[in-house]
């Protein structure tokens, strides 16, 4: 598979009161084109720092991050990197710039210096993709959290990126908003072929991923298919991760002597597993 992002032996340090603190140390990771990767980790596991390294918002203290072969350290090509790897943040309020939805979505393409016809088309397409077209003339502060976050995603896809990194996009949303965002993101990956890196601490959001990476203290402690990662509940709980109630149930059954795996998340599969376990 072709790689869109390569993180090579990256160390990232920041200085706090003259103390050097390393968030990541000698960290390596490849993201494949077209893949859907979920990065799980609790607050302070280094996952947000990693996200900001992926599009050059942070520069590695040592080591390199390559996007489509372009080094993010290269100042000449900074815009190229940011266009290829779009980024969506946690707080939807703090990433919308204009007071009309369509003008906000246009902000990225406008910065790229495209012609006004091309911008118009991209904005309309992006808003349709996230199902916010009918709100194009609205003001962001009249929208719900989930809707605002979808506008933020539209603002990124209007730049036609190859990869989109979402840093805890659902953390401030209600269940309805969370579901909207996960649906939108899954669609972007499956239908538009955009590479997705979703950073979260909700394990159930990893259900549709191709690959799940678990981070703790700046290190990868698990990197595999969702099912394989979910089967290690103990490990996930130990690093302070949120485990959905289905997994929790299977795990508790396992601890109570049931011969059962914890590698599923959906309600349907969980019920089926319990049924077959009872029938054994």
């Amino acid at each position: 598979m072709e790689k869109i992002i390569e993180v090579k032996n990256v160390t990232y340090e920041y200085t706090d009161e003259e103390m050097k603190i390393a968030v990541l140390r000698n960290f390596s990771l490849d993201i494949e084109k077209g893949s859907f990767t979920v990065i799980l980790g609790h607050n302070g596991s280094g996952k947000s720092t990693l996200a900001k390294l992926l599009n050059g918002l942070f520069k590695p203290t040592s080591g390199d991050v390559l996007v489509d072969g372009i080094n993010t350290k290269d100042e000449e090509t900074e815009i190229e990197v940011k266009r290829r790897v779009g980024m969506v943040f946690q707080n939807p309020d703090n990433q919308l710039i204009a007071s009309v939805v369509e003008e906000d979505v246009a902000f990225g393409p406008e910065n790229l210096g495209l012609s006004s016809e091309v911008i118009r088309k991209r904005v309309d397409d992006a808003l349709k993709t996230v199902d916010m077209y009918e709100y194009r003339k609205s003001s962001p502060h009249h929208l719900s959290g989930g809707q605002k976050q979808r506008v933020a995603i539209a603002g990124i896809i209007a730049m036609e990126p190859e990869c989109i990194v979402l840093d805890e996009p659902t953390a401030m949303l209600d269940p309805k908003g969370r579901a909207e965002i996960i649906k939108t993101v899954t669609q972007l990956n499956k239908e538009k072929g955009i590479t997705v890196v979703l950073i979260t601490h909700y394990m159930e959001e990893a259900e549709n991923a191709d690959r799940v990476i678990v981070m703790n203290d700046g290190e990868i402690i698990a990197d595999s298919l969702p099912k394989k990662v979910f089967s290690q509940v103990e490990k996930l709980k130990n690093v302070g991760l949120d485990v959905p109630q289905t997994t929790e149930l299977l795990y508790m059954l396992q601890k109570n002597g049931f011969n059962i795996d914890t590698d599923v998340i959906s309600i349907k599969e969980t019920a089926e597993k319990i049924k077959s376990c009872l029938e054994e």
């Binding site: 918002l57 980024m87 707080n91 003008e103 246009a106 910065n111 210096g113 012609s115 904005v123």
Partner: peptide, 27 residues
């Protein structure tokens, strides 16, 4: 202050470059 800091990062991520070469959608 927190908002402005986050907004600045978000703008940077959307290829904002201080208006250099910027085009407008609405003419």
């Amino acid at each position: 202050i927190r908002r402005s800091y986050e907004l600045a990062e978000a703008m940077e991520c959307r290829c904002y470059n201080g208006g250099e070469g910027r085009q407008r959608m609405k003419q």
